[in-house]
Simulated assay, not measured.
Amino acid sequence: MALIEEAFQVAADLMDDCEPSDPTPEFLAIFPPTDPADCSSGLRAIFSDPNFPSFGVDFEGGNSLEAPDVCTICFFSDTDFQPDPLAQLIHRCCRETLTKAPIGFEWALSCSRPRVNEFGGGWCAIFADRIEIESTREALARALEGGII
């Protein structure tokens, strides 16, 4: 949780053109700088546009009384959700958890008007050794071509 919070704060600072706080050693271990002059370059590298490091989500999380050693995080968004960097973030920050079980999430896209290609979503499954991600549009195209039985 602490690493995810730190990554979100660094990304928010960069988006606001603020200088991020000095990174923790744990942060630098999972996001090693790709540019020695920029400590946040390792985090920037997970985004398709490193100059726009936005996950497009907010999050909340914490531990429950029933399972105090388990932290549950919920991501949510109304606009511009970016599944790829979020998957990379989870893959890097949750290594120990991923050795026990995969983590997954789904997303939905909607529009206030009935427009072609304005609806959809997808899914992401994150394993210790890989990330699998697919949009509903890709799955639908495969099904229409006879690729899903």
Rank of each mutant, 00 (worst) to 15 (best):
P83Y: 03
D78N: 15
C124G: 09
D38F: 07
R115G: 09
I126F: 05
F59N: 00
E134A: 12
L3P: 00
D13S: 13
C74H: 15
D22M: 08
P114H: 09
D84S: 13
T72I: 09
D13G: 02
S110Q: 13
D13R: 01
S54W: 04
L89D: 01
L28H: 05
T72H: 08
S40Y: 00
R44P: 00
I148S: 01
G104P: 03
E132Q: 14
A143E: 11
A7V: 05
L98M: 07
P102M: 05
I131Y: 05
P23R: 01
T72C: 06
P53F: 07
C74K: 14
I4Q: 03
S77Q: 05
F27E: 00
M1L: 13
T72L: 08
D38H: 08
F127T: 06
F75C: 02
K100Y: 15
P50R: 06
P83C: 07
G120P: 01
V57S: 07
E66M: 11
C94H: 04
L98G: 05
I46T: 01
I148Q: 06
G104V: 06
F27A: 00
F52T: 14
D80A: 12
D35R: 07
V57P: 00
P50Y: 04
P50T: 06
D16M: 15
C74F: 14
E132I: 11
A2P: 08
E26W: 09
L140S: 14
S54D: 10
V116E: 14
F55Y: 08
S21H: 13
A11T: 04
F76G: 05
L43M: 06
E5G: 11
Q9I: 15
V116Q: 11
I149N: 11
T79D: 15
S41W: 05
L144S: 10
L14F: 07
R142P: 02
Q82P: 03
L14N: 03
H91F: 10
M15D: 08
P33Q: 03
K100I: 13
I149C: 09
G56I: 01
E118H: 15
L98K: 07
L65F: 12
I148M: 04
P36E: 10
S110A: 12
G62I: 07
F27Y: 02
T24C: 07
N117R: 15
F8T: 04
I30R: 00
F31L: 02
E19M: 12
F81A: 02
Q9K: 15
S41N: 09
A45E: 08
L140A: 11
S41R: 06
S112F: 14
T72F: 09
I126G: 00
P32Q: 04
E145W: 08
I149S: 13
D49H: 08
Q9F: 09
D16K: 15
S135P: 06
C94K: 03
R115W: 13
P20A: 04
P85S: 04
E134S: 14
A143I: 07
F76W: 10
F47S: 02
D84T: 15
C124Q: 05
A108Q: 15
F76L: 03
P114G: 08
L98Y: 06
A11E: 00
I46E: 00
D17T: 10
D84P: 07
L3G: 06
F81W: 03
S112C: 15
E132N: 13
A101H: 12
F105R: 03
